[in-house]
Design a protein around this nucleic acid. Structure first.
Lengths: 342, 342
DNA sequence: AAATGTATTGAAATCGGTTGCATACTTCTA
DNA sequence: TAGAAGTATGCAACCGATTTCAATACATTT
């Protein structure tokens, strides 16, 4: 293996000590400009590459940030990641990314790996089955910031970046009611996840505020995947009276339901008005276009990363610790799938 | 800051030398079982966490693998990444991910960061504007394996994992011809990218083999994004005679075209047969369903990562160096959008 | 019993950058 | 011009795990 160029080589080359070289390279103010330039020049000439292991070992920080998402192959998550990557790279941080595949065990294992990798901060969107945050304890103890996004734990001593899920579904429900829907079914995912629990609340509140009675038969829990439409529609069409409004917690599933409904000759929005969630590409491509909730995913990635990094840079760690929740603006987008000319 | 537990603490605790502790922890065979157990037990008791920086510094390897993709927020790329993550985590490697946002400058900068981060291997899908691979030179020189996937450089001394793009489009073209299409338009992205250049070849060969004459007016280059449909359809409908077959290099754009065509009253597949590319979710959700090429993205991620890691583990570095290309199976999926009852 | 071989363990150097403290050298003030 | 105050640089000790080279302990062979 070829020998690496070190600061010692540079030092020897310019006739100075490694100390000064180190200072010059990290822009320490107490180095004469002439000296600094000479060193930088020599470094370039020799093809010097700083060894981040030595640096991290000594400085006890890695300059990298860990991200744990439930699934990498999701339109929502990949958009969040894109936002995070942009900010992290700008600030000179590396991104170490892993997925929990919705499994608590994997999440724990990933968390340990991140801890072991000495990430300077951790961004997490919880796995569906995660009902405690024990495994982040090492981070808390060592005072390494952990910031949750989208799927945050109930626990109130962690900072989270979220949207107002309750409000979003409240608005969507109110909208369907205004469109004349008499029986609205709400389809959502695992209620252990705050996102869905909050949405259920919004649904209930909206019903209540508009004089509707909540009926648990109108709430369906599902995987919300590509194939969910058949299952969901099957259930819905068995209900009497037949529902005429459908509030589905993600666009993929909403699109799938739309297909299943059309296949059975149920007209959308006339017989059944639909509202999805996320404003994924697909919501704009199916027919009729899906009404949905715009979820600022890319922006969420940016905001989460920015906050984490600010917190690392400022020594003022209290800022984040005292912030409990950052809520981003989301909005109902009304398209054809829920617009009835009643 | 709290003191970290090191192997020295363990050594003191059990009355042995750090050397033996190190060996015990890394499963070195030359440690008595009793000793090893005693050490492992003490390590657990003390809450020992290995310091990867010290380890990496000494071992001169990082146990992490870099991935550079053009865009993180793409259905295709995120699926590839999911496959990579699975394999990497299994093998105990960390994933450092960054995006080039289709810019050569950013790709160069990312490559340098990866090199500086001392990744053990690099997986790259080229940015659109990348026309040389100069910036990977440091990797080649240091003999760090670089493996390309999907978008590979023309240069033939790099290993790449790809599908047979030429064959895929050849088949799609032949299929459209069989469906009775007389004028087939091919829409693709930046021809600097091998993926599109190869597809164009497949298109040409198929035309030739079926007695059609190639006409460059039938080739349209576009961004292939969500809004591309309007632009593309606008162009197509100006052609005389009007084309009756459309071969679009990605499903998002194909779906967008489909919408634009329907808006203008052009019937699919009767007036215009369409074939997309990738078999994204969206191809199954639009109406009519899009015929497309199944692209094994997740699998590609797995294969690329597996090959890279095998190469790192075996000291037999020649395997990868001698492999030039790994081609995965792709296949035409015929759905409604191209099935004509002619 | 001596010699040879093998299984375990340790001392100390090493990876390369950072940093507290000390020192040399300027510049400024009285 | 002496002494204070400030600036620029260097020494040497880290950070924590790995590894080479040797040393010991123990078992086996002759």
């Amino acid at each position: 293996m070829k020998k690496e160029i070190t600061i010692y080589d540079i030092a020897a080359n310019v006739g100075l000590s490694p100390t000064t070289v180190s200072r010059a390279l990290s822009n320490h103010p107490r180095v004469k400009d002439v000296t600094r330039n000479k060193i930088l020049h020599a470094a370039k000439d020799l093809g010097y590459q700083s060894n981040i292991f030595a640096s991290s070992l000594r400085k006890r920080r890695s300059n990298s940030i860990g991200v744990i998402v439930p699934k990498l192959n999701s339109a929502f998550q990949s958009s969040v990641l894109a936002g995070m990557e942009k900010i992290a790279t700008q600030a000179g941080y590396n991104l170490i990314i892993s997925q929990s595949v919705e499994s608590l065990d994997k999440e724990i294992s990933n968390t340990n790996i991140m801890f072991n990798s000495r990430v300077d901060g951790l961004l997490v969107s919880k796995a569906g089955t995660t009902d405690n945050i024990e495994h982040f304890q090492p981070f808390f103890q060592k005072n390494i910031p952990v910031l949750f996004f989208d799927r945050v734990p109930e626990n109130n001593h962690c900072t989270g970046v979220v949207i107002n899920n309750t409000q979003a579904i409240y608005d969507a429900t109110a909208h369907l009611i205004k469109q004349g829907c008499k029986r609205i079914v709400h389809v959502l995912g695992n209620l252990q996840i705050n996102v869905y629990a909050d949405r259920l609340k919004g649904y209930k509140y909206a019903l209540m505020d508009h004089g509707f009675v909540f009926d648990s038969a109108n709430v369906i829990t599902d995987e919300l995947d590509e194939d969910s439409g058949e299952r969901i529609v099957e259930k819905i069409l068995k209900l009497h009276p037949r529902p005429d409004g459908l509030l589905i917690s993600n666009d993929t599933s909403a699109a799938s339901c739309l297909m299943a409904l059309k296949k059975r000759g149920v007209k959308v929005p006339e017989d059944m008005a639909i509202v999805g969630f996320n404003n994924d590409l697909i919501s704009r491509m199916v027919e009729p276009n899906l009404s949905t909730i715009n979820y600022p995913s890319y922006h969420m990635g940016e905001v989460a990363m920015k906050n984490l990094i600010n917190h690392l840079d400022d020594e003022n760690q209290e800022i984040l610790q005292k912030t409990n929740t950052i809520t981003l603006r989301s909005a109902l987008i009304i398209r054809e799938s829920s617009q009835r000319t009643t």
